[in-house]
């Protein structure tokens, strides 16, 4: 099991969290984005090896979203931050 450091609650068990997807995506413009851009935004994902930024929801705790930089090969959690904050450390 992972231990995720919530920026508000401190280290908590993974079971208190729900995975909430890729944190590197930017929503296309509602006014100008093409159908292809929406298709890519909604459906297409990279499958990187190594550090990756993702969102987790502290559903059974403070109910805040948390940004997590996790190495998807080793499960090491490199850094966590609030959803709008910048993560330190390497990787993307």
């Amino acid at each position: 099991m992972l231990e995720i450091k919530c920026p508000w609650c401190g280290p908590r068990a993974q079971t208190e969290f729900s995975y909430a997807g890729d944190a590197t995506l930017t929503r296309p413009s509602l006014d100008t984005a093409t159908e292809t851009e929406w298709y890519e935004h909604v459906y297409l994902r990279g499958n990187p090896r190594g550090p990756h930024d993702e969102l987790w929801h502290h559903a059974a705790g403070c109910r805040r979203f948390v940004k997590v930089r996790r190495d998807v090969t080793t499960h090491e959690i490199i850094a966590t931050a609030g959803p709008h904050e910048h993560l330190g450390g390497g990787g993307k």
């Binding site: 609650c9 079971t15 059974a60 705790g61 403070c62």
Partner: peptide, 10 residues
């Protein structure tokens, strides 16, 4: 105090 899970429920 804390909010957490006991027996899988909040």
């Amino acid at each position: 105090c804390a909010e957490s899970l006991i027996g899988h429920i909040g």
